[in-house]
């Protein structure tokens, strides 16, 4: 099944979906979204890409093997947990750092181990589900 219209449109749509998935990941802390939802959106984007342009193209676009992505995600989540231990706090305690701002919690860019954890969730979802989808596309 090859559709020129779908293949052309997918280039744009998949790219937009990927940007949107990162947007959902980053806004998750305060608004609906988060790593799981963002990951699912990214998976859908790549699944669409694989459907319209073939799995080989989709794998090339991903560049990393999905399994490695999933394992990297688990690693991110674990590192986020260990950061708490390093500070002498329980495993997975959130660690925050603000870059810039006025030093009183206003303005600036707040970074946290929570974000790293959520990135880990995102990568695990993307890697695991895409691994299965690609394999099914190729083998079935």
């Amino acid at each position: 099944m090859h559709s020129l219209i779908l293949a052309t449109a997918t280039r744009l749509i998949a790219a937009l979906m990927l940007v949107f998935s990162v947007f959902m990941l980053l806004r998750g802390h305060n608004d609906p979204g988060g790593g799981f939802i963002g990951g699912l959106i990214a998976v859908t984007a790549f699944a669409l890409y694989a459907k319209s342009r073939g799995v080989d193209e989709a794998r090339r676009a991903l560049t990393v093997h999905p399994t490695n992505l999933a394992v990297a995600g688990l690693g991110c989540a674990l590192i986020a947990g260990v950061l708490g231990l390093v500070r002498g706090q329980p495993f997975l305690t959130g660690q925050w750092i603000t870059i810039g701002g006025d030093g009183h919690g206003h303005g600036g860019l707040a970074l946290s181990s929570i974000l790293l954890f959520d990135v880990g969730v995102y990568l695990v979802v993307v890697g695991s589900v895409l691994g299965v989808i690609f394999a099914m596309e190729e083998e079935i």
């Binding site: 802390h29 988060g34 959130g94 959520d118």
Partner: peptide, 13 residues
Amino acid sequence: AHGHNIVNVILVD
């Protein structure tokens, strides 16, 4: 947890 989205804060923190 410095987050307004309770569902996500529960999940990741």
